[in-house]
Amino acid sequence: MSMMMAQSKSESQPIPVTPPRAAVAPGIKMEAKGLKAWFGKSQALKGIDLPLAENQVTAIIGPSGCGKSTFVRCLNRMHEVVPGAHATGTVTLDGADIYGAGTDPVLVRRRVGMVFQKPNPFPTMSIRENVLAGLRLNGRRPADAAALVETSLRQVALWDEVKDRLDRAGTSLSGGQQQRLCIARALALEPEVLLMDEPCSALDPIATARIEELIHEIGQRYTIVIVTHNMQQAARVSHYTAFFYMGELIEHAPTDRMFTQPSNPKTEDYITGRFG
């Protein structure tokens, strides 16, 4: 059903893929196999097989209700947090199944960070405390908290804007700044994978451009999965794109190829705006 990435030595893939821009034959960081997910009785994912390339940006596109968000929420076991929701199948992280027996979802989430659609800084905490929240709430005291705050905020290009008011409430920032703060909060834990669920949909075009720039920069150091409604955005920030439709993966390919010569007519219809 989907085209697979052919860079993994161990797997022989029938379809040769052109290397994505700036890509250097990445390995596979995470991989979903036969992933199915439900909300109560309604099935949101109908068996997804999708590898996610290491230190690359993978964009997930598709019309509303196609299961994009559900898919990324399965990657850090946040799906099951919703009452009545459950998932089956496997998702590997560095080869180990995160749905395996005895796997603690809490530990998975420390390795697979997440940024949500709406910025959600903790309202009772200052900017500084928000950045350190992941560590503090896990009972760890960073040796050099000030340095960690600075590097985290610099990574998201927020440092210069907030360095004089680190004690102000995180919620006192603008929407775009709050979202960058949330990204900094996730990055402070040094996750291996960063999931972004429509991170720009609540932001204006300028704030969106900043976040995209940011994804470009950190995309070389982190494995990023970004859900987006905006196909231009997918084309701009990602190395790989996966197209979801009605809970199924229709196509997965290097982004430039996906947008220039999609192999599935449904993909073509969607990216040319004929539906969705």
Binding site: N76, M78, V81, V106, L107, V108, R109, R110, R111, G113, M114, F116, K118, N120, P121, F122, P123, T124, A133, G134, L137, N138, C182, R185, A186, L189
Partner: peptide
Amino acid sequence: ALREAALALGVPRWKAISSI
């Protein structure tokens, strides 16, 4: 959103409830 934010940071549920 705040519960999810805390859980997504790998915070155990009891801690997310009590601290956030």
